[in-house]
Lab assay of single mutants.
Amino acid sequence: YHCKTPDCKGWCFFEDDVNEFTCPVCFHVNCLLCKAIHEQMNC
Rank of each mutant, 00 (worst) to 15 (best):
E39Q: 12
H2Q: 15
E39R: 10
K35R: 12
C31D: 03
F21M: 08
D7R: 10
F14E: 11
V18P: 14
A36L: 03
H38E: 04
D16R: 14
C43V: 05
D7Y: 11
Y1R: 01
E15C: 06
F14W: 14
C43M: 04
V18Q: 14
N19D: 12
T22M: 06
Q40L: 04
H38Y: 02
N19T: 14
M41Q: 15
M41I: 10
M41N: 15
D7I: 01
N30M: 00
C3V: 00
C31Y: 09
F13R: 15
M41E: 15
H28F: 05
Y1V: 07
N19F: 05
E20N: 06
V25P: 02
N30T: 03
C23M: 00
C23H: 01
C12V: 14
C34D: 09
L33I: 09
F21V: 14
N30S: 01
C34M: 00
A36Y: 01
P6T: 08
T5P: 02
C8E: 01
N19V: 13
C8G: 02
H38L: 00
V25I: 11
N42T: 14
C43Q: 05
M41R: 15
E15I: 08
C23R: 01
D7H: 08
E39P: 13
C31T: 04
N42W: 11
D16N: 09
N19G: 08
K4Q: 11
M41T: 15
C8R: 00
Q40K: 14
T5R: 10
K4D: 04
D16S: 10
T22K: 10
C26Y: 01
T5S: 12
C3A: 00
C43N: 04
W11D: 09
C26R: 02
V25Q: 09
M41F: 08
M41K: 15
D17G: 15
C12Y: 14
I37Y: 04
E20D: 05
G10E: 03
C31S: 04
M41A: 15
C26F: 04
H2K: 15
T5D: 05
K4P: 04
D7T: 05
Q40S: 13
H28C: 08
V25G: 04
I37N: 07
V25M: 06
K35P: 05
L32G: 05
C34P: 09
K9G: 12
G10K: 03
A36F: 01
E39F: 08
C26N: 02
C23I: 00
V18E: 13
E15D: 08
Y1E: 06
D7C: 02
K9R: 13
P24A: 03
L32V: 09
N42F: 05
G10S: 03
C31Q: 04
E39G: 13
D17L: 07
W11P: 03
E20C: 06
I37C: 08
M41S: 15
Q40V: 06
V25L: 10
H2L: 07
C8L: 01
G10C: 03
T22F: 07
L32A: 07
I37G: 07
V29E: 05
N30K: 01
Q40Y: 06
N19Y: 09
M41P: 14
C3L: 00
N42I: 07
F21D: 08
F27M: 09
M41C: 13
C43T: 08
D16L: 09
N19K: 15
C3M: 00
H2F: 13
C43W: 03
E20W: 09
C23K: 03
F27W: 09
C3G: 01
T5N: 07
C31L: 00
H2S: 11
F13K: 11
D7F: 07
Y1W: 04
C26L: 01
D7E: 13
D16V: 11
C23V: 00
D16I: 04
D16M: 07
L33N: 10
A36E: 14
A36R: 12
P24T: 06
D7G: 14
N30W: 01
F21S: 14
P6V: 07
W11L: 14
C43Y: 04
D17K: 14
H28M: 11
F21W: 14
L33G: 10
H38V: 01
K9D: 12
V29Q: 06
C3F: 00
M41G: 15
C23Y: 02
F14G: 15
G10W: 05
C31P: 01
